[in-house]
């Protein structure tokens, strides 16, 4: 395990804290009268691995979906790597802007339901966006895709289509597909929730590897508490549209400060 606690300011010549790669400022999201996020303030440092835990409907997934521009915040400002992704006060429309598209390329996402393209093979799934979005040439894209498939342990499955693969294999291809875009930030939306129990391990192994070997920023919504404890630099407990508690895994899991965190962990760790 990596010796990491609270993300420390990197001690360089100048004693400035690193600029956060992700910053939520007073972000709210309302569905009618339902407040999914309540004026959230939330920073993630470059390279940080953050797990978000909490009961269903607490707004965890909404954070990822706003970052991936799949949903629009109702209020507030979101910046990614110094670029403004959303700024509701500026009257930014739901409409796509050029800047939003450019910023979005720095972010990748792994979905609960994999969302592989069912009419394409594993290889085609992975090279699709590098070729047509980044303009990479085909040979280069294929070479890189083959490396990535090896990385997730599916080198022999490049010509299989999603229906021919197990859920665990599909999710590993989905991870390779996201990595092919070389994102600075990778989002995981409950990546193992749709899997049969015996397939969860293979997917967690791939994510664990990534967490330990890359300096990509990772933000993960998960129900796998042991896993979150093992790979995260920081764990954030969410409830009712707000961050209840945030801290290093040792603190959250061994010595939670908030009663809500304690009761949640009691409930999920009981079995």
């Amino acid at each position: 395990m990596r010796p990491s606690t609270e993300p420390q300011p990197r001690t360089s010549g100048v004693a400035l804290p690193p600029d956060p790669i992700i910053r939520f400022e007073n972000v709210s999201k309302n569905w009618g009268t339902n407040h999914v996020l309540k004026s959230l303030n939330f920073d993630v440092a470059p390279g940080e691995k953050v797990s978000i835990i909490g009961p269903s409907g607490s707004g965890k997934t909404t954070i990822l979906r706003i970052l991936m521009t799949l949903e629009t915040p109702s209020e507030g400002k979101v910046t990614v790597d110094g670029d403004t992704l959303w700024d509701v006060s500026l009257g930014q429309k739901v409409r796509e802007t050029r800047q939003l598209r450019e910023t979005r390329k720095k972010i990748g996402m792994v979905f609960q339901q994999f969302n592989l393209f069912p009419h394409m093979t594993a290889m085609e799934n992975i090279i699709e966006a590098p070729i047509h979005v980044l303009g990479m040439n085909k040979a280069e894209a294929r070479e890189r895709a083959a490396e990535l498939l090896n990385l997730v342990g599916l080198g022999k499955h490049m010509n299989h289509t999603p229906p021919q693969m197990s859920g665990g294999q599909q999710q590993r291809v989905a991870i390779a597909r996201a990595l092919a875009m070389r994102p600075k930030v990778l989002l995981f939306d409950e990546p193992t929730s749709a899997l049969d129990p015996e397939l969860i391990g293979e997917v967690l192994n791939v994510i664990r590897n990534l967490a330990h070997t890359t300096d990509m920023t990772m933000l993960m919504v998960t129900h796998e508490m042991r896993f979150a404890e093992e790979i995260s630099d920081r764990v954030v407990m969410f409830d009712n549209g707000a961050a209840v508690e945030s801290g290093p895994p040792a603190q959250i899991f061994k010595d939670p400060q908030q009663e809500r965190t304690r009761s949640f962990l009691r409930a999920v760790l009981q079995h």
């Binding site: 799949l70 796509e96 598209r101 393209f117 009419h119 875009m181």
Partner: peptide
């Protein structure tokens, strides 16, 4: 399925490309 469009967005594919390569073939 909505997930297909979301996957396209996450990969930075613009609407015309999404339709042509993913949504229409499916």
């Amino acid at each position: 399925a909505k997930g297909q469009t979301e996957a396209c967005i996450a990969l930075g594919m613009e609407p015309a490309l999404r339709l042509r390569r993913i949504i229409i073939p499916q």
